[in-house]
Nucleic acid binder design. Structure first.
Lengths: 198, 198
DNA sequence: TCTAGTCTGACACTCAGTACCAGTCTTGGT
DNA sequence: ACCAAGACTGGTACTGAGTGTCAGACTAGA
């Protein structure tokens, strides 16, 4: 078979990726995102620059690969919401796993988000990554509302707004040194708007 | 006086900027954003690379400087909305000047947005630029609602959501080859959500 | 053992963006 | 008209991200 080798390789690759990201994160926190070069990262990890870059594709991705599981969790959670629930409530609840993941390990998620928040390049790329989740979320909302889903514009607007509510909450959470409950801030942001129709 | 010279210089500088951007836009449309280097742009404009870059600061800004007046127009329009109007309606109406500006000169705004839409780097930077408008918009909303404005989180969420509704409408407008009325798409996106409270 | 596919390090390269410097031009004051 | 201060220009050198290529080492399966 071919699949066996592929799978073990895939596992190994993921593990290496996480290990490299972990080491890099320490350096970024110490010297700032722009204060560390790819050469620094590679040298500290004991691999060549080529290899290091092969694992991530870009410097930003070294940090932001952490968020990949969040996107999947978000989509799954939305799909698991009861059919009767309106879109806005479902989107709010779908964020719970993501919020839990960010607040588990006190300080972990906070430090990560603070790093992202004060590095414009990371902010921009994180939004790009989020934009990549949107089509899947729109798809789930569309299926939930079958057989007569709202237009693509409407669904897209709701998903985008929900993502921005999350981002707003995260920004305030970081700005407030992580003191208030993140979940409460997300509630407050979602409460600023309400679903119209359906 | 010192101001006189400063002003004339400022006018000249703006004019040169626009002229350079105009020429660059043609090249970008022909060869794509990534298909044109700063050397190409400078050579075509008849200035040195140093000088060209001094006018914009970054390659993305050559394209996105076009959006600068939009931010100001947006803030002014929001400030001009009647006091009784709720936030969501006011934000929607505040976008009218921006929409008009983008749809005047048929094809102009459309081609620009299509270029931005298919260049990830430009998308990301445009969102960054929009993020720069938000604090001012939040400030205006806060003043409108004096003496008891909602929390910063709430206002920020509304402004961010409004911006995303605009972006969603723009994306769909470009995807549909500019056929439907942009204003109608913005209405549809805004209609996907409704203001809660106040 | 052999073979095919993968991973690695090394090197060369393009390009964006920054810093600096010397020469030139413009502006306002004398 | 002349001069001094400041702005604008072009040139050069540099850093650092990201791409492409290549040969050699490693690994899994036949």
């Amino acid at each position: 078979m071919d699949a066996t080798g592929t799978i073990t390789r895939s596992i190994g690759r993921t593990a290496v990726r996480e290990e490299l990201a972990r080491g890099a994160f320490v350096q970024f926190c110490r010297d700032g995102f722009d204060g560390v070069t790819l050469d620094d990262l590679a040298a500290a990890a004991g691999v060549s620059r080529s290899t290091f870059l092969r694992y991530f594709g870009s410097k930003e991705e070294v940090v932001l690969s952490t968020f990949d599981p969040l996107g999947d969790a978000l989509v799954d959670a939305l799909r698991a919401r009861p059919a009767g629930e309106d879109d806005w409530a479902a989107l709010r609840r779908a964020l719970d796993p993501a919020v839990r993941q960010l607040t588990r390990e006190p300080g972990e998620g906070f430090v990560l988000l603070r790093l992202v928040g004060r590095t414009p390049a990371l902010c921009a790329r994180l939004r790009e990554k989020q934009a990549g989740w949107r089509p899947r979320l729109v798809q789930v909302l569309s299926e939930r509302a079958a057989p007569a889903p709202p237009s693509s514009v409407v669904l897209h607007a709701r998903v985008a707004a929900a993502m921005e509510c999350l981002m707003t909450a995260l920004e305030h959470w970081v700005a407030a040194e992580g003191r208030p409950e993140l979940g409460g801030l997300v509630d407050e942001a979602f409460g600023a708007l309400a679903p119209a129709g359906r």
